[in-house]
């Protein structure tokens, strides 16, 4: 089991969260604890979003709280939670664009909208023109283990594929998809990227690479909901060339960011 040299291969984690959660006693709820944990594992950049912002009627104050919390910690790249249903959503997007924030995270299951609605189409059109990257959080928890009175439904894969086809130059990173969902999304699109946090099969990475191009797999751990060691071990234990591991661990995300 080998990993690339930590000095030359930083790890970028695309799927990190900060804050409390109603259905799980999360570890590392402060930015200092979270940074310490992720740094100890060689993670050098963490794209983090706010758990509280998901549930605020207007996510923006939650995003600003996160920004203030993590600004002293170089590990974190704050990713705003974006709800296209709020009345000033276009104004918010324009603000992000001016601030050169070119990445937003969607939570369609939590914000109760369909990915093929007219509203989301106009948002995605703007994002395409302004060079954004879209993250779609497919789930936060295994549906079988949700709180019995606070349940969300899995996303409709067809609708994700529909928007990917509609905007083929818009990079869409789907987070927390199960193995079969990842395969279907990647095989039926050219602009959907997948993280590895929920995908699991015997020899996960090799199994994914048997059917998905290397360029579409990115490292995501879903920390602190999951033990980040699990995602790292998936990569570490796979018998693939070290240069392929580098692509999964940071180069694929870096390339996407550089293109923005």
């Amino acid at each position: 089991m080998k990993m690339p040299d930590k000095e030359t291969c930083p790890i970028f984690d695309i799927n990190v969260h900060l804050g409390c959660w109603h259905n799980q006693r999360l570890p590392y709820t402060s930015p200092l604890q979270l940074q310490k944990k992720l740094n100890s594992l060689g993670i050098r950049k963490a794209f983090v979003s706010s758990n509280q912002a998901i549930f605020y009627s207007d996510p923006e104050p939650g995003n600003l709280e996160l920004l203030n919390k993590v600004k002293r910690y170089p590990l974190f790249v704050p990713v705003p939670v974006f709800n296209p249903n709020i009345p000033n959503s276009e104004e918010i997007l324009r603000k992000y664009s001016k601030l050169k924030i070119k990445i937003i995270k969607l939570f369609p299951s939590f914000h109760n909208y369909s990915l093929n609605s007219e509203k989301i189409k106009s948002v995605l059109k703007f994002c395409l023109l302004e060079g954004f990257i879209i993250l779609i959080q497919m789930r936060m928890e295994d549906e079988r283990l949700q709180h019995p009175t606070l349940k969300t439904n899995p996303l409709d894969i067809d609708k994700i594929l529909e928007i990917a086809e509609m905007y083929p130059s818009l990079p869409i990173i789907c987070l927390s998809g199960y193995f079969n969902e990842c395969v279907r999304l990647a095989q039926n699109s050219s602009n959907i990227y997948l993280d590895i946090s929920f995908a699991e099969r015997l020899d996960t990475i090799k199994a994914l690479l048997d059917v998905i191009p290397l360029s579409r797999i990115v490292f995501g751990s879903h920390t602190p909901f999951f033990y980040p060691e699990s995602a790292l071990l998936k990569v570490e234990s796979s018998e693939i060339p070290l240069c392929w591991k580098e692509h999964i661990l940071y180069k694929n995300i870096e390339t996407l960011m550089e293109e923005r």
Binding site: E200, R201, L202, D203, T204, S230, A231, K234, S237
Partner: peptide, 15 residues
């Protein structure tokens, strides 16, 4: 296993 991966499952203990 084989529905699950040794890596992710061992990560629970190591982590």
């Amino acid at each position: 296993a084989p529905g699950r991966d040794f890596s992710a499952q061992l990560g629970k203990i190591y982590g």
